[in-house]
């Protein structure tokens, strides 16, 4: 049983689904935190994406980002609203920035650095989008607070991700299984 479940950790589709489920779970927790506008989120649901930057190849990493956006939108019933648009733009930009930072920085950049870059870029894109669809020129007034929030939550998420990656046996198993079976679960989604 244990062997079979360990073997499944080499299946990228399954790992993507599990990490996607964690995004939904963290998003549900985040939903309970009061916020001035529905699209202003803390970004804790990006934690599994941060962890996946070292686990999944780029195509599956992007699938995870899309699973997060679509699943969260279905759960919250916001699939056709601007909230989904904000979520899509913020998540994809954060995912791509985190991926690029991880690949370009290697060991020179910590999970905290990757996380802060992702959070701040996600929030910056959302402020730009807010300027176009909600606030107009006044969006620049919320920008400092929104970007500062990204800095704080990005740092906290990065610290947690670093501790989790160092101590988690699930993460260690998934890393080794995915590295040992690079072709399993098809490389292309």
């Amino acid at each position: 049983m244990r062997e079979a479940s360990e073997r499944r950790l080499g299946d990228k589709a399954d790992v993507t689904a599990l990490l996607g489920a964690f995004c939904f779970f963290l998003s549900a927790i985040e939903y309970m935190v009061p916020k001035p506008l529905p699209f202003m989120r803390l970004g804790i649901a990006n934690l599994p994406i941060l962890l996946a930057a070292d686990l999944l190849p780029l195509p599956w990493f992007l699938v995870l980002a899309l699973v997060k956006v679509v699943g969260m939108s279905v759960i919250s019933g916001s699939l056709f609203s601007y909230i989904a648009l904000f979520s899509l733009a913020g998540t994809l930009v954060a995912a791509l920035v985190m991926w690029a930072a991880r690949r370009a920085g290697g060991r020179l950049i910590s999970a905290v650095g990757v996380s802060v870059l992702g959070a701040v870029s996600s929030n910056a894109v959302q402020v730009l989008l807010a300027r176009v669809v909600v606030f107009g020129e006044a969006a620049r007034l919320i920008a400092p607070a929104f970007l500062a929030m990204g800095l704080v939550t990005g740092t906290l998420l990065g610290l947690f991700a670093e501790a989790f990656a160092a101590k988690s046996s699930w993460y260690a198993l998934a890393s080794s299984q995915l590295a040992a079976r690079p072709g399993e679960g098809r490389d292309e989604p």
Binding site: G20, A21, F24, V63, L66, V67, G71, P189
Partner: peptide, 15 residues
């Protein structure tokens, strides 16, 4: 993609 989202929902229910 739909089947991956559906699997994610199954895991979500377990969580």
């Amino acid at each position: 993609f739909g089947s991956i989202v559906a699997s994610a929902f199954v895991y979500y229910e377990r969580i």
